[in-house]
């Protein structure tokens, strides 16, 4: 898998000089589903903003699809390659209708009117924003829907990589699943998805790879399964694997202890019984 996003020896200090990231080395391929996890202040959001070029490295480099984020005038080149959905939708909704909101990005990259409309319809559909809402002022939508309009507005740019900061904040469980299922479908279609989240069950169910940060450094970077099988290491950043994973780790007589979901647990349970049966 060729690296699409290459973070090399990245240090980042805030403008006031406070150091936030130390020597980050991460390489992300063309079709990955990555979760950034860790405590608040561990540097997750900062790292993701470095990845999309909003923050420029203090030292080291971030290269997206061959484009160094420190280059001049790379904003437009970057947005079609890497999209960023902010945690609070209210900061990124500035048009007076849902339709204009979603169309804003595509218009910025000078697409034709037809193409813009096609992008709007597609993005709205997949993000779960009904066409009846097109004329509504985003301000009057409930928070969960505002979040989805914000996601749609990024999707309309069809960036190859999409970073979503806390995709499930303000969403209930079913809405979270809808959003995540959608991100999964994008991933299956070839996009790279990076989520920043505190919801470990979401990570377990959807992400392939987890990067746990602690104090601005990478604590562990591996497959989700491998990361969650090191609960003691994760404790350093106060992250706990999902309940069912922890339960499986406590069970005697299970052939595997690295289950991530209830469905996997069912399989593990069945195979533990049948393995016993075949042995006995």
């Amino acid at each position: 898998m060729s690296a699409y996003l290459e973070v090399t020896h990245l240090d980042y200090n805030y403008p006031d000089g406070t150091p936030a990231l130390f020597d980050i080395n991460v390489s992300i391929g063309r079709q990955e589903f990555v979760a950034l996890i860790g405590q608040n202040g561990s540097g997750k959001t900062t790292l993701s903003k470095c990845m999309n070029g909003l923050f420029k490295p203090t030292s080291g480099s971030v290269v997206v699809d061959g484009i160094d984020t420190r280059g001049k005038g790379v904003v437009k080149q970057l947005v079609t390659r890497i999209g960023y959905v902010f945690q609070n939708p209210d900061h990124q909704l500035f048009n007076d209708s849902v339709q204009k909101e979603i169309a804003y990005g595509p218009r910025n990259i000078n697409l034709s009117a037809n193409e813009v409309q096609a992008r709007v319809d597609e993005a709205a559909r997949v993000a779960g924003v009904a066409p009846e809402l097109y004329a509504t002022h985003p301000f009057f939508l409930p928070k969960g829907l505002r979040q989805r309009v914000a996601i749609a507005s990024i999707l309309a740019l069809k960036p190859r990589t999409i970073i979503v900061d806390e995709p499930t904040t303000g969403q209930d469980m079913r809405q979270s699943v809808e959003v995540m299922e959608f991100l999964r479908s994008l991933w299956q279609a070839g996009h790279t998805i990076i989520i920043v989240t505190h919801e470990m069950s979401i990570v377990a169910r959807y992400a392939q790879r987890a990067i746990a940060l602690r104090g601005g450094r990478v604590l562990v970077d591996d497959t989700v399964r491998a990361v969650f099988s090191q609960p003691d290491l994760l404790k350093q950043t106060y992250v706990e694997p999902p309940q069912i994973t922890r339960a499986a780790q406590r069970l005697d007589g299970l052939s595997r202890h690295d289950v991530l979901t209830v469905e996997e647990m069912q399989d593990a349970f069945r195979s533990a019984i049948s393995a016993e049966a075949s042995q006995g």
Partner: peptide
Amino acid sequence: EDFNTIREAEQARGLDKSA
């Protein structure tokens, strides 16, 4: 603070101020 975040959000949507 809001202003800064909004500016970032702008940029993330492909707004190039210099142009």
